[in-house]
C-alpha cells in the first residue's frame, strides 16, 4: 500500500533552501525561528508532536538522504545517546549555548562589543562568513543574531548528518532538543499520572 504524498512531505525543500540561503545572505537565518516557535506552539496548544511527525523538514531531509540516497549505514545508536540523561543533558547544553548566543547579541545591541561576521561551528570553530553580509545593511545586533542563529542551525544539521551517516537516518530525532522539549511539554500537558 503506497501512502499518499501530502503537501507537508515536501517541507524538506524549505529546510535545504534555508541552509543554502545562509551562504548568500545571513539575514535569512531569522526565518529559522519558525522551526523554534511552530513546534513549541503546536505542543503547547494542541499537546501533540505533529511537528515532528509531519512537518519537520529536517527530519524529512535526513530520511531522504539516509533512505532514498542510501547514505545511511542504518546501525543502531549507542545506548548512551538514547538514554534520558543524554537527551535532557543535550537539551540543557543546547539551551545554555542558545542563551550565550542571545547574550552575545545583547552585547552588540548595547554597544559593548562589535559585530562578528563569523559562523561558529560545533560551538568551537569560527568560520569567517563575511561573504554573506554587507556591513551596515541592518542594525548590527540584528545581523549578530542572524550569525549566531545560523551557527546553531548549521551545527545541529552537521551533527544530524554525521549521525544520519553512521546510524539510522533520523538519529538526530533521538537527541533533537526541540523534540525533547516538545515531548516534555506534551508529557506535562497530558499529566504524569495518566498512562
Amino acid at each position: 500500500m503506497k501512502k499518499k504524498f501530502m503537501w507537508y512531505d515536501y517541507l524538506w525543500i524549505l529546510s535545504a533552501l534555508y541552509l543554502i540561503l545562509g551562504f548568500f545572505n545571513i539575514l535569512f537565518a531569522w526565518l529559522g525561528l519558525l522551526c523554534f516557535f511552530i513546534p513549541l506552539i503546536i505542543s503547547i496548544v494542541r499537546g501533540n508532536k505533529s511537528y515532528c511527525n509531519k512537518y519537520c523538514g529536517r527530519g524529512q531531509l535526513f530520511s531522504l538522504l539516509g533512505n532514498k540516497c542510501k547514505l545511511s549505514m542504518n546501525k543502531p545508536l549507542p545506548n548512551f545517546i538514547k538514554s534520558k540523561w543524554f537527551r535532557y543533558g543535550f537539551l540543557a547544553f543546547f539551551m545554555i549555548m542558545f542563551f550565550i548566543m542571545i547574550f552575545n547579541t545583547y552585547l552588540v545591541f548595547s554597544g559593548a562589543s562589535d559585530l562578528k561576521e563569523a559562523v561558529t561551528l560545533l560551538w568551537t570553530f569560527k568560520v569567517p562568513w563575511d561573504f554573506a553580509y554587507t556591513a551596515g545593511t541592518v542594525t548590527p545586533w540584528i545581523a549578530q543574531f542572524a550569525f549566531g542563529f545560523y551557527s546553531i542551525m548549521l551545527t545541529s544539521t552537521l551533527l544530524g548528518i554525521i549521525t544520519m551517516i553512521f546510524f539510522k537516518p533520523r538519529a538526530w530525532c533521538v537527541y533533537c532538543p526541540m523534540g525533547t522539549m516538545t515531548q516534555l511539554i506534551c508529557k506535562a500537558k497530558a499529566g504524569t499520572s495518566k498512562e
Binding site: K49, G59, C173, V174, G179
Partner: peptide, 8 residues
C-alpha cells in the same frame, strides 16, 4: 521519542 518515523 515520539518522532513519528514509524507512522510514516
Amino acid at each position: 521519542v515520539a518522532c513519528g518515523c514509524c507512522l510514516k
